[in-house]
Every structure is written in structure tokens, then in C-alpha cells.
Design a protein around this nucleic acid. Structure first.
Length: 312
DNA sequence: AGCTCTTCCTGAAAGC
DNA sequence: TGCTTTCAGGAAGAGC
């Protein structure tokens, strides 16, 4: 399941392979994960890939306009704003979210495409950029140049860039479980189940703790843990659990460093206690019952257990 | 505001 | 052996 480190690894791979290439054609298979398949098919051919970036778990392909100056001028005089994308007189951005099982790979056109290949971008150098997604939990959409900043800003803050003050405000100021907050892409963008569990273990915080119940020290430790876990995972090119491979088809190695994720019943690397798995915020959550103590007020008896939580 | 449940989808694994 | 059921999970939406 691609999260921030996997997506970052894929983006770095794609950056070596794609900028400067022109998209000649788009071939579509199943399209129920594409916001507007017709627009996707019509507005991309002819465009050149300028650059590639990452917004949380989204991969953003920045595509140049492809009209000549003359025809661009004609289109502008015609005031054809509605078909702005299709007329190709301005940049657009192709955004790809890999969901659970999405893969983007650059392959020679002669190589046969794997099953569940739903979008093929034919490139001008005899290769193809292929999107494969078994479960189709991914998403693909075109965003106009005038709307890309707003799209990005609707997402949360990059966890590798967030300041201590901003982290305390976004996490410490919320009365929701820390697990839910870290998974919420409008709070921080890019964290998923693996890296949330690993970060909480490292910071010794139970996943069911509330954001506003954390001390300043704990918030600081959590921010550092998130950074450390993500940076280490990027260095090891992500975690390969089931079918993740990067843009060149290679698996990552961070799964070898997992301390809690999918290690239920195995000993904690710090204290030896057995790792447990519970459901928090609807997600399976792995933690060490000894290093990450259960929050004080259990869900059951919330009658008069609230008065205490003001202190910190 | 935040929680839980449901939906989408498929293949792997468990259960019978 | 072979069929059926369960489960996993990112994100959005409904309902409480």
C-alpha cells in the first residue's frame, strides 16, 4: 500500500525517466477511478511532461501546453474558456493517487502489459507509462493550472516540512484520537496505516490517545518520530508488503525494519512484550502494550471521567 | 466536531 | 480437493 515513502520513491524514479517526454496517446481500460475519463483522453495527447512532484500521496505530473503560439492566440481570441483543457493552451496537471494497489511503471511499448492495466500513456520515445491497479481504489484526475495551488492547499501539511508550532496546533489542539488525526490527509498529508503505527511506537504513544491529551514533550517526540520513520523509509525505498514496487519495478526494504506493523504476537524490539493489534478509528492498529500505555479513561465509563483530562 | 458504519474492489487465506 | 466466507485497506459520505 503506497504511502508517503513509497510515493516519494516512485516519484524520484519517474523523474529520472519522464521529464521532456511527450504524450502521444492515452489508452483507457476500466475508468471508474478516473474523475473525467473523456477529458483525460482528449486533453493529454500532444503535451510534454515538464516535471513531477508529490503532494502527500498524490503524484503530480506537470504538463506543458502544446499549442503553437498562433493557435493559442486564436483560441484566446475566441474566448473558449470552457474547453480550456482540451484546447491545450495552458498547462494542466495530471494527479494520480495509487490507492491500495496502484502502480505506475515505464516500460517499452513492445513489452506486454500486466493484467489490470487500465491507463496507458504512449510516449514519444517508444516507451509507455502504464497505470495498473488490481482493486481500483486509486484516483486519477486533471487539474487546471489555475486550480492546482488550491487543490494542493486543501490537503494537509507535508509531515517532513511541518514546524513544531504547526504540529502542536494541528495535533495537540484536537480532541480526536491520535491514530485518526495522523491518518487524516487534511491534517498531515501522506501518512498511512504502516507509518502511523511505526511512528506511534517510536514515540511511545498509544494509538487511542487523544491529540489534546498529549504533553508538549509527547508532541515533540511524535513529530521527531514521524520524521525519523518517514526519512528512514524513504532511504530504504519504502515498504513492500504485498505488491508494492517502485517505478522501475523494484521492491522496498523498510518492511524489514517494521517494529509493530503486522507483528501481532511477536516481541517488542524495546521491551519484549507481545505486540497487540486493536481497531482504532476503524483501522487495525499495532502497538506495544508496555511501551505505549493505554489511555486512562476507557471508552466504557465516560460518565465522570472527563474532569481529569484538563491538566497536562 | 468526531465517531462508527458502509461503500468501492479483488485476491489471498482461512474455514468447512 | 474444492467451494464459500472473511479480511485487508484509502478515502468519502451518511447518520448519529
Amino acid at each position: 500500500m503506497p504511502e508517503l515513502p513509497e510515493v516519494e520513491t516512485i516519484v524520484r524514479g519517474l523523474r529520472r525517466l519522464l521529464p521532456g517526454r511527450r504524450i502521444l496517446d492515452v489508452r483507457l481500460g476500466k475508468t471508474d477511478f478516473i474523475d473525467d475519463p473523456v477529458q483525460l483522453g482528449e486533453s493529454l495527447p500532444g503535451r510534454r511532461i515538464e516535471s513531477i512532484s508529490r503532494y502527500g500521496k498524490f503524484i503530480a505530473f506537470h504538463l506543458a501546453c502544446c499549442a503553437s503560439n498562433a493557435s493559442a492566440a486564436v483560441a484566446e481570441v475566441a474566448g473558449d474558456a470552457a474547453s480550456d483543457c482540451a484546447s491545450k493552451t495552458s498547462r494542466v496537471h495530471l494527479l494520480v493517487h495509487l490507492g491500495m494497489t496502484g502502480q505506475l511503471m515505464v516500460r517499452g511499448a513492445a513489452e506486454s502489459a500486466p493484467p489490470h492495466t487500465h491507463v496507458t500513456f504512449v510516449l514519444d520515445d517508444g516507451r509507455e507509462l502504464r497505470y495498473t491497479d488490481v482493486r481500483r481504489f486509486g484516483r486519477m484526475l486533471i487539474v487546471r493550472d489555475s486550480e492546482i495551488d488550491a487543490f494542493r492547499d486543501r490537503l494537509g501539511v507535508e509531515p517532513l516540512e511541518i514546524t513544531e508550532v504547526e504540529f502542536a496546533r494541528r495535533i495537540g489542539g484536537r480532541h480526536a484520537r491520535i491514530k485518526a488525526l495522523l491518518l487524516d490527509q487534511h491534517v498531515l498529508r501522506g501518512m498511512g496505516n504502516i507509518y502511523v503505527d511505526e511512528s506511534l511506537w517510536r514515540a511511545r504513544i498509544h494509538p487511542a490517545r487523544c491529540g489534546d491529551a498529549l504533553s508538549r514533550e509527547q508532541l515533540g517526540a511524535l513529530r521527531r518520530a514521524v520524521r525519523h520513520v518517514l526519512e528512514t523509509a524513504i532511504r530504504l525505498r519504502g515498504s513492500s508488503i504485498s505488491d508494492y514496487v517502485d517505478a522501475e519495478g523494484f521492491p522496498g526494504r523498510f518492511q524489514l525494519r517494521h517494529r509493530v506493523y503486522q507483528r501481532e504476537g511477536k516481541p517488542c524490539a524495546r521491551c519484549g512484550a507481545k505486540i497487540r493489534r486493536i481497531i482504532v478509528a476503524g483501522r487495525s492498529s499495532h502497538f506495544c502494550p508496555q511501551c505505549q500505555p493505554t489511555p486512562r479513561a476507557p471508552k466504557r465509563g465516560r460518565k465522570n471521567a472527563r474532569a481529569k483530562k484538563q491538566k497536562r
